[in-house]
Design a binder for these strands. Sequence first.
DNA 1: GTAAATCCTACTAAATTACTCTGAAATGAG
DNA 2: CTCATTTCAGAGTAATTTAGTAGGATTTAC
Lengths: 145, 145
Amino acid sequence: MKLSTKGRYGVKAMFEVALRYGEEPVSIKTISERQNISEYYLEQLFAPLRKAGLINSIRGAQGGYVLSKPPGEITVADILNVLEGPIEISECIDDEVTCARTGYCATRLLWIKIRDSVNQVIESITLQDMIDDYNEIKNNLKKGE
Amino acid sequence: MKLSTKGRYGVKAMFEVALRYGEEPVSIKTISERQNISEYYLEQLFAPLRKAGLINSIRGAQGGYVLSKPPGEITVADILNVLEGPIEISECIDDEVTCARTGYCATRLLWIKIRDSVNQVIESITLQDMIDDYNEIKNNLKKGE
DNA sequence: GTAAATCCTACTAAATTACTCTGAAATGAG
DNA sequence: CTCATTTCAGAGTAATTTAGTAGGATTTAC
């Protein structure tokens, strides 16, 4: 079970934008260089993020992207929902038809538990939390720990 | 984020075998009919499960598969590890190289939290738990709830 | 002996992933 | 005004993965 690059790159990219919240817009080129991701590919990820209202774009020279809300109000779940769709460990959770055949679906409850567990984590972590973690790691490294 | 059919079918199939623990072996044909999964495909799933020591096979007529241990000693994680490999939300967790480039990997901690959360769920649920849940659902239905 | 079953290996069609590319449109700086 | 910079939109594509099919060999209860 793995996230696709869409989700992984998307979160990394949003993190870069979040780091500069309140400052100048961040261009795809900048993110591409900092995170070592293809510009073309990043473009494709930002389109749906913008349409979903998580970021605003500023076109033209010196343009780029800015968060539409403070980093504390954007969760990892918000990002992953846009880029990967909602977490569904198995379509069996929604689709009653296939399960109905065998009477009671034995595994349905299991998939729900896994899904809820993932959702709880990603809904509780905001971009601000990631920034805080990041700063803490940096500080600890400075102190030589 | 979704499980492949390997994982989903595999857990369903193992559940069917677990339901008959202590009784006769369960054939692939039986599981195929009960869970509506291709026999050929099921065969492919049972090979690694057997090699991993989760089930024993009994060849020949009236043969089939039996759990190698009581249902309470086989977790969902055991099954998924064999069929899907270990949960790794991002290879970034193990592979230090790519992360090292950008200094401190900002998302690494996030992937670890998600992975640990999933692992905690699937390691804590055994086939016996699933059987218990299943019986409870059946009982509740009988009582007309 | 025969039917029922596992075992083993190879093959393949379809879908998904992970990009790549081209060109248009907007905009700030000089 | 012009030009470099940047987003925007959509098409194309190679590689990988998924999900299943298939064929034949081997084992064993009856």
